[in-house]
Design a protein around this nucleic acid. Structure first.
Length: 386
DNA sequence: GTCCGGGGTC
DNA sequence: GACCCCGGAC
């Protein structure tokens, strides 16, 4: 029931995990499921094989390698952690729990995971999987984010880690707890019949394994509209800008975008690109893609994309905020998933002229229901080997 | 096709 | 409280 994951490789010379592999994988796994991390981890490690290599990379390189994983702040924090590791720890990931906690991006869980699993220290570790297992075994009927409940879970995990450490198996026990939560004691459909803890599990004895932990309440998604202009030149360069340093997709790159509760008009969009991008659009006709919706935790982002091609760059003056870049260069930038699709996966169907489409697709209040787009899967990704 | 929900740190 | 993306259930 143990998964063979690429960051779990053991160096035959030392019999140890590579702690830098653990660091990168744990940061990637924060708030992110294994299957998605699998797609990115190998690429990332090839590009940044050591903490030192990561530390000297540019932030854009790191963000680019992170594209698609989401929560891009993690990438910046990992980058910052690599710098600290080089400056203060001689390029080696520290093994001490407090030193790990002091690294940017590492909280109690991640520091505990690296200390116990990569270094065999007596450190506890609680992620949502472990929390669920412990709450169920203890029969503690609370919500997943209940403060007192969580404090109790951490105490239990601490007791377990200390006991396991005495037996020299803290790495196995901590990792085993996570595997159990991920593969057997799952949120939806726990496989109690094959669970090694079935006879001591209070939730199961009470028949409440499905109710524990209770769901935490979710924030509502707020609808917003991003109106985008993809302006390309005949020689294949596209105008891009950098997003603001805070908020959604902070610091990532995009085609010039106006954000609002309602779609911006084509006139507004042309005006903004003319002023900020210092580009003279003249009478250039724009085509309009079909609207699509991209969901994030707190927002339903409707994308309305206009596209136009000019003969050559017509920068009226140097723009401080905008630049024309070739597709290969853009591919190297950090971008949100929907923006990557807009800029690199080519145009969507853009039949007819924008004005004609407009009257059909748009209601008075803004956007007609647009379909929710999800990324196409790459085929053949192995997810588990249990 | 639509949409619910999983997953830590600051 | 803010922050992303996508699998899979329906």
């Amino acid at each position: 029931m143990r998964r063979d994951l690429p960051w779990r490789v053991v160096d035959p010379a030392t019999g140890m995990r590579n702690p830098y592999f653990s660091l990168v994988s744990e940061l990637m796994l924060q708030q992110t499921q294994v299957s998605r991390v699998l797609e990115k981890f190998g690429q990332f490690m090839e590009r940044f094989p050591t903490a030192a290599a990561l530390a000297v990379a540019s932030e854009d390189e790191v963000l680019s390698a992170w594209t698609g994983l989401g929560y891009y702040r993690r990438a910046r924090l990992l980058h910052a952690a690599a710098k600290v590791i080089v400056e203060r720890h001689g390029g080696q990931v520290p093994s001490d729990l407090d030193a790990l906690m002091a690294l940017p991006g590492l909280g109690r869980y991640t520091a505990g995971a690296i200390a116990s699993i990569a270094f065999g220290k007596a450190a506890p570790l609680v992620d949502t999987n472990v929390s669920r297992v412990i709450l169920r075994v203890g029969g503690v009927d609370v919500a997943g984010d209940d403060k007192a409940g969580l404090a109790w879970v951490w105490e239990q995990a601490e007791v377990l880690a200390v006991a396991a450490h005495k037996q020299g198996v803290v790495a196995e026990v901590n990792e085993g707890l996570m595997e159990l939560g991920a593969l057997v004691c799952t949120s939806d459909n726990p496989a109690c019949l094959v669970c090694p803890l079935r006879d001591v599990c209070k939730a199961r004895a009470m028949g409440k394994q499905r109710e524990i932990p209770r769901a935490k309440k979710q924030a509502a998604r707020k609808p917003v509209v991003h109106t985008v202009l993809v302006l390309s030149t005949a020689d294949g360069r596209t105008l891009v800008e950098r997003r603001a340093g805070t908020g959604l997709w902070a610091g990532l790159w995009q085609a010039p975008t106006i954000e609002g509760a309602k779609p911006a008009s084509e006139v507004e969009l042309r005006g903004r690109v003319g002023v900020l991008g210092k580009v003279r659009l003249g009478t250039l006709r724009l085509r309009q893609d079909e609207d699509f919706v991209f969901q994030t935790t707190h927002r339903d982002v409707t994308f309305r994309v206009y596209r136009g091609e000019i003969a050559a760059e017509k920068m009226i003056a140097e723009s401080a905020t905008h630049t024309f870049l070739a597709k290969e260069t853009i591919a190297e930038l950090g971008m949100s998933s929907p923006m990557r699709r807009i800029l690199l996966d080519g145009t969507q169907q853009t039949s007819g002229d924008a004005a004609g489409q407009e009257s059909q697709r748009v209601k008075a209040d803004g956007v007609k229901r647009a379909k929710v787009i999800q990324t196409k899967r790459k085929n053949g990704v192995k997810q588990r080997d249990d």
